[in-house]
Amino acid sequence: MNEKDLRLEEALSSQVGVDGNDYIFTTKQVFMVRVNLVILKLLLENRKKRGVAVVLDRPYGYLAHLLSLHRVDQTNLSYIDTVARFSGDSVIDNPKKVVYTDGPFHVELLMNAFSDGYEDDFKTKAIEMEDVDFILIDNVASALTYNTMEAMETCLKTLKELSDKHNILIVMGVDPHAHRALYGLLKSEIKNEIKIEERWLHG
């Protein structure tokens, strides 16, 4: 990571997980990948947390590869990949702990991938709740392409229930200018908002 990323990490460190368990961060869509990377580094390495990255817009291998190249230890990170079986992608293969869903549709059922989910179908491949300190969603707006706002709301409420019940930190980013209605929905469900400031990103 370069100096800018370290400064961003320092700024986020004083915000993420400081007051409660649920966080949205707001930034331009084009900077989402970078902020997610820095948050994962903060949680996995600096805070030694165990967590799950829910990948909604590309095969998980890209995020795993990105973390590897930036030397972020992924031993305590699992993935829920909604895209890989749907993308025909064969470039990056990175055998980490991963639960695949059949596609990015039915986001309202996504949290069934956890052992505390509501459907039996996922149980055998589920992620155990005791292995989870945080859940990061990357990136929530891309689910809008395949899901109704009602399904998004159901997903969010289930995620909040899991978070409250098991004391899990949840983090997701949104671009409030590009996705106004989604931002409104997230704000109605999630207590804490971190506005990523320009100076954090660019020094």
């Binding site: 084009v30 989402m32 990948v33 817009d57 590309r58 095969p59 890209y62 993308s87 025909g88 992608d89 064969s90 470039v91 990056i92």
Partner: peptide, 11 residues
């Protein structure tokens, strides 16, 4: 095919 798929996945 692999290149363009990959480029889009890097956002």
């Amino acid at each position: 095919f692999d290149l363009t798929n990959s480029l889009k996945s890097w956002q």
